[in-house]
Every structure is written in structure tokens, then in C-alpha cells.
């Protein structure tokens, strides 16, 4: 995907997350982008690996830095945690040039923001890792088996939490079908 087109999508996602009450730090941007790409099939073309707080893309991290260099986003420090990422007026101008692309993916981005906007870092880690495990093992695998894998990857996530996260992700997969088709 063309870099500026992708920048329009990322900044729109960040705006939607903020509108839904998200802290909108880097972890929130990472996990929401993972859902947009892997659940809603929006071709952002980032490569995600399992890393800190679950799925993480070094490409996306670099891209967020580039967006800062281009003045499309800025960081707003918030005591005492990490900063909030804020799209700027320039990002709005950029989005105006990509109505067609935004129109194509608007409802998918809005769905992810709606589901994840209110969640904290720990919730996002559990859910994104649950989606990652489901993607690796296939949604046909029993939830208990996927939950066990999730707990194995992230030992600090309890069995109950893991199963709840897998079930929540299954629910999102089911809901997403209506939007995707």
C-alpha cells in the first residue's frame, strides 16, 4: 500500500480510538493496527511478531516515527505513563486526499476502535495475543486448546483470563463477518 494512503488510515484509526476514550499510546496503536490488519483484513502490510505485550510490529514502530517526522502525529506526554499519540491538522489534510480509501475501510476501522478503545494495555495484550494464537492454530481449534497456548506464550495470563480472551476474540471474528462480507 502507498505510504501516504496508509498514513491516512493509521491517523484515522488513532482519531477513532481517541474518540472512544483510548489512552492511545504506542501499545494501543500497535494492537489496534494488528486487529485492523488481521481481523478486518485491511492491507496495512505490517509484519507482526510476538513480542512485548503480544503482537508487535517493528515496521509500524518505525512508521509512527516517520509520521512524527512528517508532522502528521505528535506525542503528548501524560503523567505518569507513556505519551498519547495525537494526529495533527496536517493528518486531517492528508486524509482529505484519500476519501476513496478511507471510505473503503471506514467501517472496519470504526469497528476495531469501538471494540478496543476503552481497553487498557493488559486487556489489549490478552486479546491481541488471543487473535494471534487463533490465527496460528485456526479458529476451528477448541477454545480451551487455544487458551492453553495463550497461557504458554504469556505465563502471566491465567487460564481463566486466557479462555475469556479467546472467547471474546471468537465473538469478534463472528461479528466481523457481517462487515467483511
Amino acid at each position: 500500500m502507498d505510504r501516504l494512503k496508509r498514513a491516512a488510515l493509521i491517523t484515522r484509526l488513532l482519531e477513532n480510538l481517541k474518540d472512544k476514550g483510548s489512552w492511545c499510546g504506542e501499545t494501543h496503536a500497535q494492537k489496534a493496527s494488528f486487529f485492523v490488519q488481521h481481523l478486518m483484513k485491511v492491507p496495512l502490510e505490517f509484519e507482526f511478531i510476538l513480542y512485548k505485550h503480544g503482537p508487535f510490529s517493528f515496521d509500524l514502530r518505525d512508521e509512527l516515527t516517520s509520521l512524527r517526522a512528517d508532522g502528521l502525529i505528535r506525542l503528548e506526554p501524560r503523567w505518569p505513563y507513556g505519551p498519547t499519540i495525537k494526529p495533527t491538522e496536517l493528518a486531517r489534510k492528508l486524509q482529505n486526499n484519500y476519501h476513496r480509501t478511507l471510505g473503503l475501510y471506514e467501517n472496519k476501522i470504526a469497528y476495531v476502535a469501538d471494540k478496543l478503545g476503552a481497553k487498557g494495555v493488559a486487556d489489549l495484550e490478552r486479546l491481541a495475543t488471543a487473535l494471534y494464537v487463533t490465527g496460528q492454530q485456526g479458529a476451528g481449534d477448541p477454545p480451551e486448546k487455544r487458551a492453553a497456548k495463550l497461557s504458554e506464550i504469556k505465563p502471566h495470563i491465567s487460564a481463566d483470563q486466557a479462555l475469556a480472551s479467546i472467547r471474546e476474540v471468537d465473538q469478534m471474528i463472528e461479528e466481523s463477518q457481517t462487515i467483511l462480507h
Partner: peptide
Amino acid sequence: TPSPSEENQSGGEPT
């Protein structure tokens, strides 16, 4: 990692 998550006051991943 300092984290704003209520249930994770002991902190996030070590770094």
C-alpha cells in the same frame, strides 16, 4: 514498563 492498566499496577513487561 509503566502501564495505565488498573489490573496491572505491578507494571508491564520488563525493559
